[in-house]
Each structure stands twice: as C-alpha cells, then as structure tokens.
Simulated scan of single mutants.
Amino acid sequence: MQAKRKLSVLGIFLAIGIVLFLFVGVEWTYFDYAMKNRIPKILAMLLSAFCIGSATVVFQTITNNHILTPSVLGLDALYVLVQTFIVFILGATSPLIVNKQYNFVIALGVMIVASVGLYKVLFERGKGDVMFLLLVGMIFGTLFGSLSSFMQRVIDPNEYLALQNNLFASFNNIHTPILAMATILMLLLIPFVWDDLKLLDVMTLGREQAINLGVDYDRVVKKLIVVVTILISISTALIGPITFLGLLVVNVARQLFKTYKHTYLIIASVLLGGITLLYGQLIVEQVLGFTTTLSVVVNLIGGLYFIYLLLKESKQI
C-alpha cells in the first residue's frame, strides 16, 4: 500500500504540473492558440518520459548496473551524426531538415536500422555478452561523435547555426503528425514485449539464477535490447537527445521505491520523467525566459547526480 500511495502522490504532482503548464502565463485572448501550442508539448513530454524511463529501467536490469543508461549504446551520438550528415551533404535548407516529418522518419529509421542490425551482429559474435555490446556501443558512440565534430567544423557557420536547432532537445516545435507516428509506434511495441517484462523481476537475480528458474535468458535479453533501442530512438528523434534524464529519474525512483518489482519502478520512472520535463520546461519558459534549453538544465542536474552516484559506489567498494 505504501508504494501505491507514493505512486498516487507522484501522479498528483504530474497532474498539477500539467495544469500549471497549460494555464500559467496564458492570455485568455489567445487561449485557443495557446492550447494548440501547449497540448502537443505536454503529449511529447509524456511520451518521452515513457520511452526514456521504461527503457532505462529495462536496460539497467539487463546490464545489472544502476549507473548505466541506453545512451552508452551510442544512439544519441548517432542522432547527432545523422543530422550533421544531412546538413553537410544537402545543406540546412534541405527538406530533410526543414520538413519535420521527413526529418523524424529519416532519423528514426536510420537509428533503428543501424542499432538493431549492428547489435544483432554483435550479439551473434559476442555470444549474447551484454558487456561486449556495451563496450562496442561506447566505441561507436565516440566514433560517431568524432565524425560529427569534424563535419560541424567544415560546414558553413550559418548552416551550423541552423543545425544547432536539431541537436538540442526541444519541445518548442512539436508537430502533431510526428507525435502521432511516435505514439503509434510506441503502442505497437507494448504487446510485443509485454510478456517478457514480467520476467524482469526474476532477471534481477542474475543470469544463472534466472536460467535455473526457467527463463530463456539470452532470447529475452536480445528482444529487450531491440525494444530499448527503438524506444530511445523514438524519444531522440522526437525531441532530441537528453543524455542524463533516464539516469536521474530511474535512480530517484529506486531511492523512493526500495523494491525489486519492475511494475512499480517503471511506473515511478515514467511519472518522475514527466514531472521533471513538465516542471523543468515550465521554469525554462516562465522563469528563465527561454535563455537556456531544458536539455542543458536536465543534463547539468543529471551529470551532478551521476558524479554523486559514482562517489557513492566507490565508497561501498
């Protein structure tokens, strides 16, 4: 009951955040325009919170490490590379950059195909070794980042400025068709992986114990890795990369809910993700006056929290 009460409190905070985001600073003369602008933002935040929160919980269980996030797979760096490559080859006025629907489909398609194809090969060569997958993912992430930096230095400065709009997480230009496509794709994933999510509680015991209890461990891990990469790809293609959001909300959820049950952890992480994005964007818009972006604030707080976790882990060793 205590866990359910905590979830109820988080749900109330989230609901209050939605109401505040909808109505704070709204001039009633432009009420209809404000709602058309703010409702897609809220839906995008909730969708991103679901993708990042749930994917990070699953990923940490698979890797048996609470300070790792799916960003170590190199998806954020791949997204930046895709955007930079389009501008480098076609220019900032290309329809693949200007048209948000085209840009979303291209970025999402490249990330899903590259990550699923790459990690399928790596799993076969690494014989299902998750640590081998993480190592190669980090190497590719560094490679993608280096290629992006090289192209960004070569392109025209004006095109680089235009490119910057796509490299930072933003909720300012959420298009309804993109949001609809992302939502449909996410909903299609849920029944595909629903039965396997029930096995996560057992998988926290470790590979050998899970196998002894009848879990087809390697098959489940491969399937969940694919789902994690797709969820992170959806979120990144929709709003841009927010590296430390998953680390922040999932570890706070683990502190609040001292439980092994992933039902509570996933729901709590999603709620905390929504709360963080909603209140963070509200502060960026109403207090800071758009002088910075939400991703900068989240990554600053998340980075500091990551350092805290590292120091905490080092003391326990």
Rank of each mutant, 00 (worst) to 15 (best):
T29K: 15
F31R: 15
A34W: 12
K36R: 15
R38M: 14
P40R: 06
K41C: 08
I42C: 13
I42V: 13
A44C: 11
A44F: 07
A44I: 12
M45G: 04
L46R: 10
L46Q: 11
L47A: 10
L47Q: 00
A49M: 10
F50I: 14
C51K: 02
S54W: 01
A55Y: 06
A55Q: 13
A55L: 07
T56M: 03
V57H: 03
F59W: 13
F59I: 11
I62R: 06
I62Q: 09
T63N: 15
T63F: 14
N64R: 15
N64E: 15
N65L: 13
I67K: 04
L68G: 14
P70K: 13
P70H: 14
S71C: 06
V72S: 02
L73E: 03
L73D: 00
G74Q: 09
D76G: 12
L78C: 04
L78Q: 07
Y79Q: 03
Y79T: 14
L81H: 03
L81K: 05
Q83P: 08
Q83I: 14
T84K: 07
T84M: 05
T84F: 08
T84L: 10
F85E: 09
F85K: 06
V87Y: 05
V87E: 08
F88K: 01
I89P: 06
G91Y: 08
S94V: 03
L96R: 10
I97S: 02
N99R: 02
N103T: 07
N103I: 05
F104H: 11
F104N: 12
V105A: 15
V105P: 00
V105G: 06
A107F: 01
L108K: 06
M111Y: 05
M111N: 04
A114W: 00
A114C: 11
S115P: 00
S115E: 03
V116Q: 05
G117P: 02
G117R: 12
L118S: 02
Y119F: 15
K120D: 05
K120V: 02
V121N: 13
V121S: 09
V121G: 12
L122H: 02
R125C: 10
G126Q: 04
K127V: 04
G128H: 08
D129N: 12
D129A: 01
V130H: 01
I139V: 07
F140I: 02
G141L: 00
G141D: 00
F144P: 00
L147Q: 00
S149C: 02
S149P: 03
S149G: 10
M151D: 11
M151I: 13
Q152M: 14
R153K: 10
V154Q: 08
V154M: 11
V154C: 05
I155M: 12
I155F: 07
D156G: 11
D156H: 06
